[in-house]
Write a protein that binds this DNA or RNA. Structure first.
Lengths: 134, 134
DNA sequence: TGCTATTAGTATAAATATATCCTCAGACAT
DNA sequence: ATGTCTGAGGATATATTTATACTAATAGCA
């Protein structure tokens, strides 16, 4: 039960970016150094964020990444699902076929409740909020 | 961000055991079959639960595992920490040296808040409660 | 004692998550 | 055009989690 390294890195990098004026462009290598994230791994992470349209990217000289929407509309939930896909705390929530047991249903209900609560929490944190508090 | 396979299995197995009268003894192989858990892996899990004194175990003929305390005092949090050790959603919460960055602190505060909330939830589910609802 | 059923514990294998490396493609400057 | 700086994407390596196999220890019983 933990958040993946990739999600943590994504949030770190985005908080860093969100501190600068909207539209600022960042190089991957620069972010990697400043946020202390392995450079190549960060590449993958930024690609996922770009696919989810949280970031936009440009190649070539003067290229880089920048946040492509209002940081008050980017939630931590958005970031995590951009990296990991749809959240499912427990395999049985996601894969209906996985649990087919007599007593598993109460656990199933419990995991669903916990997950819903967790998602609500994750949605309550926006990038703008995280920057403000600093 | 998910619960580990081992924790899920532990909860499943305990729910199964808690349905029978207090003090009932179960063989590992029996539990493995009835709860659809890989037999050897279940061995590890039951050992951990025994170390945490949620279960007691006996070897030899007539041996097996049984729940060693009141199921209304065993919470899902207890079970998960028995299996995984002290919960830490994010490495930076657990390992103070891990994050030493300018902007990481807001994220740190957020993870701590989310984790506290999660622990509160996990503590609110008892084994007895899960059995009753069935 | 010696046989069998059971858990304990260790060593290993397989699967998955994490991280790195390398080549390709696009953008810009000269 | 050509060179150089940038991200894109695939292939690979490493670490960690998940799962299995095997051996040792213990208890009961004939």
């Amino acid at each position: 039960m933990k958040v993946t390294r990739a999600s943590d890195y994504a949030i770190r990098a985005l908080i860093h970016m969100a501190h600068k004026p909207a539209g600022t462009t960042f190089m991957r290598s620069e972010l990697a150094t400043e946020c202390d994230i392995p450079d190549s791994f960060l590449g993958k992470i930024l690609q996922n964020l770009a696919k989810s349209e949280i970031l936009s990217s440009e190649r070539g000289k003067k290229g880089g990444f920048r946040i492509s929407k209002d940081i008050s509309h980017i939630t931590v939930y958005d970031i995590i699902t951009a990296i990991e896909g749809e959240l499912s705390l427990n395999k049985c929530i996601f894969d209906e076929d996985f649990c087919n047991l007599v007593h598993s249903c109460t656990a199933h209900v419990m995991w669903t409740e916990i997950q819903e609560n967790l998602i609500k929490m994750l949605k309550s944190y926006t990038l703008a909020g995280l920057v403000e508090k600093y």
